[in-house]
Every structure is written in structure tokens, then in C-alpha cells.
Simulated scan of single mutants.
Amino acid sequence: MSKKPRTVFRPLDGLLLLDKPLGLSSNQALQQARHLFRAEKAGHTGSLDPLATGLLPICFGEATKIAGLLLGSRKAYETMAILGVTTDTDDADGATLLERPVPSLDDADIETALAPLRGPIRQRAPIYSALKQGGEPLYARARRGETIEAPVREVQVHQLELLEREGSHLRLHVECGSGTYVRSLVRDLGETLGCGAHVATLRRLWVDPFATPRMYTLDELRAIAERGETALDACLLPIEDGLSGYERVVLDEDGERRLGFGQTVPCGGGADGLVVAFGASGRCLGLGQRNDGRLSPQRLFRWAGQPVVGVPHSGDHA
């Protein structure tokens, strides 16, 4: 039997908006995409459970430097909740813990139960989650049968709306901030209604700043790869697309060179805070901190301070 050829990785920078398939962990999906693109370095921005599908932004190369910013972004989901059954994972992948009859409910009853779950709330994470205690994920301890006290954290739920109701099935739209577990929202909704609930399906619709994302499935990417790496690389977004929510500051050639060497440079007026620095040529240099009209480097890309040969963009090999 012939061995599968070993992947020869290459430098590659850009953002891939992957439509994660059902049944894969986020890391498994990441590794498949990484090997397909032959990217030397890759990371994702916010895990999705194997049961979940939808947008998983993947950062290649220098884009990994902005992964933390995308991780903290606002996100939107659609989920199907099933009332009457509680599971140990709070979703359909778990073992049933308790079955209870679903009371007669109307939309007003459900709205009354949803209302306390909106806004800044305190939420207990699922025991089967990637949150770490003592350096170990909770799910690892849960699988060993250990008793776990899952942490309670403050999270932000911007929207939580009932889209459709059919018997014990509730289709919900959720928009939330970083660290929010939709499984926990559904679990708590079920407890408020007195019958329990779990997530049957979950799809991530968008992540700021990608409000209307063009996502690619792994199967689509494999088909595109048959046309060559130039076609495949065209699926990537430039890194600066992930920074569109930040103010843009354009430096002259001297300012670009000095910032690239780690120096603080004048940058004109504007509010203090994190900004995106661009050179006179139009290339994105990275993130800087503006304070009193001066810009100091925070997270610069490797080409900052180097002579302009060609403006780096998605798919460029450097």
C-alpha cells in the first residue's frame, strides 16, 4: 500500500471563512483546511462543538496575530432546542439525564422565560466544555466521572428570540458576546419552563466583522484545489478585512519605516486607542496604540519596516 505523500507546508497569510461541518471538532476542521492550503501556521478563532456547523474563521500565517481580536467579537447563531429532555452535555451528543413532560406553553410563556436570559447575565458553563480548571479542560474531568463545579461568568446576550415553535421544538436566534454558551442558554430556558431542554442543532451564522460571510465548506475547497493553488488562495481574505472595525491610520514612508523598527511616530489627531496602521503604499502594517497624537507599535506584521516590493495580500507567499 502506497503511503499518502507528506504535506509540504508553505508560508501563507490570510483569513479563511470556513463552514465547519457537522461531526468535526474545530481543531479537526482547522487541520484539514491547513493541510489543504499547505499553510505553515494556522489557528481558529473560537471553538465550535462537533455538533455545531457554520462560520469558523481560520487565520493563516500573520493573520494569527489578530485571532484574539476575532475571538472576542460578537457572534450570531441559530439553534433548535428540544424541550423535555436534559442531557449531561446540554446537547444531543450527550447522555439523557432526565425526561420531564412539557407543559402547555404559548409564545407569551416562552417570551417570559427568554427575557431574563438577555443582556448582561451570569451564566454557568456546561461541565462538558473546553474551559480549564487547574490547567485541564472541564470535559476531560467530566469524562473521568469527576464531580465538577462549572464556573459562573458574566456574559452578554444581545438578542435571544423565538423564530418558530413546533411542539417541543423551539428554533431560536441568538446574538451574543465572547464566552457565551448557547447550550447553557437553552439549558437555563428549559429549567425556567420547568421541563428541561437541550440543543439539538446549532449553526453559527456570523462573527463580527464578517456580518454577511461567504463561507466555504471543506468539500468546496477540495474541488477548488483541483484547479490549482492560485484558485484555492483566491478563497482567502486579506488580513485587514478582520480589522475593519478599527480606525485606519495611514503613515508616510518615514513613519512606516520607523514604526516597523519599533519606534513611536506622530499620527495626527483622533481618539486614543487601538488602530490599524497602513503604509503610504496601502499595505497593512498591523496594530498600533494611539496616545496623544502618537502611535506606538502593538502587533505588527512581519513585513512592517521592510522595503515595499509588492503589497502583501491574501495568498501571497513571503
Rank of each mutant, 00 (worst) to 15 (best):
V182I: 08
D208E: 15
E166G: 12
A234D: 14
E256V: 10
D233L: 00
L232H: 05
V249Q: 11
P238E: 10
G179A: 08
L162Y: 10
T180K: 00
V186K: 01
S184Y: 07
L172F: 01
F210G: 06
L138K: 00
A125L: 13
L251R: 05
Y246K: 09
D233Y: 15
L218A: 11
V250F: 12
I239H: 01
D252N: 14
T217Y: 06
R171V: 07
P137T: 04
R187L: 05
L243M: 13
T217E: 10
F210K: 08
T230E: 15
T217W: 07
G190V: 04
L163N: 07
D252I: 05
R257Y: 12
R258V: 11
A140V: 14
T212C: 12
R144I: 08
R248M: 13
T201Y: 05
Q159E: 15
G260N: 05
T147D: 14
E240V: 13
R171K: 13
A142V: 08
C176E: 01
I127P: 04
R144Y: 09
P137G: 09
I239T: 02
I148A: 05
P151G: 11
R257H: 14
G177T: 06
V207Y: 04
Y246D: 09
R171Q: 11
C176S: 01
V249I: 15
C195P: 02
E256N: 11
V186S: 03
L237V: 03
G196V: 02
L138Y: 04
V199F: 05
L163W: 02
L160H: 08
E220W: 00
A223V: 12
Y246H: 15
A142H: 05
Q159C: 13
G179L: 04
L189K: 07
W206V: 00
I224E: 03
A200R: 11
L131K: 14
L189C: 02
L160T: 10
L202S: 03
G167D: 06
G260I: 05
G255V: 05
R222I: 02
L237Y: 10
P151T: 07
E175C: 06
S168A: 15
L193F: 02
G194M: 09
L243C: 12
E220I: 03
G260Q: 01
A200E: 13
E175D: 07
S129C: 12
G194S: 07
D219Y: 01
L131F: 12
L236S: 12
L232E: 08
R187I: 00
L189I: 03
G242F: 06
R227C: 08
A125Y: 09
E136S: 10
A125H: 08
G179Y: 08
L170I: 05
